Simulated assay, not measured.
Amino acid sequence: MSGGVTQLKDEGSPKQVVVAGAVAGLVSRFVIAPLDVIKIRLQLQIHSLSDPVSTLGVDGPIYKGTLGTLKHILREEGLTGLWKGNIPAEAMYLAYGSVQFSAYTYVSHTLSGVPPPYKLPDPANSFISGALAGACATTSTYPLDLLRTRFAAQGTDRVYASLLGSLRQIATTEGPRGFFRGLGAGVSQIVPYMGLFFASYESLKPVLANPALHLPFGSSDAAAGVIASILAKTAVYPLDTTRKRLQVQGPTRSRYVHRNIPMYEGVIRTVRNIWKNEGVRGMYRGLTVSLIKAAPASAVTMWTYERVIGIMVRMEKKLES
Rank of each mutant, 00 (worst) to 15 (best):
L231V: 15
Q189S: 07
A103S: 13
P61T: 12
Y256V: 04
A89E: 02
V308A: 06
M302E: 03
A135S: 10
A212C: 05
Y160V: 03
T304A: 14
A222W: 09
L26F: 15
R150P: 02
L111S: 05
Y193T: 02
P296V: 02
V107S: 04
S203F: 04
Q7G: 15
Y284Q: 03
E77D: 11
A124N: 06
M194D: 10
P121M: 14
G65T: 05
S112A: 15
D240V: 13
R150Q: 08
V18D: 07
P123C: 11
Y106E: 07
D10H: 10
G182C: 03
L26V: 05
P34T: 00
F180K: 07
E174Y: 01
S298K: 04
D221T: 12
S2Y: 08
A212E: 15
Y237K: 04
P262D: 08
N86K: 04
K276F: 09
F217L: 07
F179Y: 12
R255H: 11
L147T: 00
A137P: 01
T110V: 11
F217K: 01
T138Y: 05
A131T: 11
L111G: 02
K317D: 06
P296D: 08
H109Q: 15
M315P: 01
S321K: 13
L82T: 01
A133H: 05
S48A: 08
V187F: 05
G130Y: 02
S188R: 11
R307A: 11
S140V: 10
G78M: 07
S200T: 14
S254G: 12
K318G: 01
F180P: 00
A209T: 04
V23H: 06
R243E: 14
L35H: 02
A161L: 03
L215E: 06
E265N: 13
E265Q: 14
G97L: 04
L167T: 12
L42G: 02
I292Y: 07
R245L: 13
S13F: 09
R177G: 13
A91P: 04
M315G: 11
D36L: 04
G21I: 00
V289A: 03
G286H: 03
S203I: 09
T139H: 03
T304I: 09
R269E: 13
I170T: 10
M1N: 07
L56A: 11
G218F: 13
A232N: 03
I227W: 05
P14H: 11
D51W: 01
G68N: 12
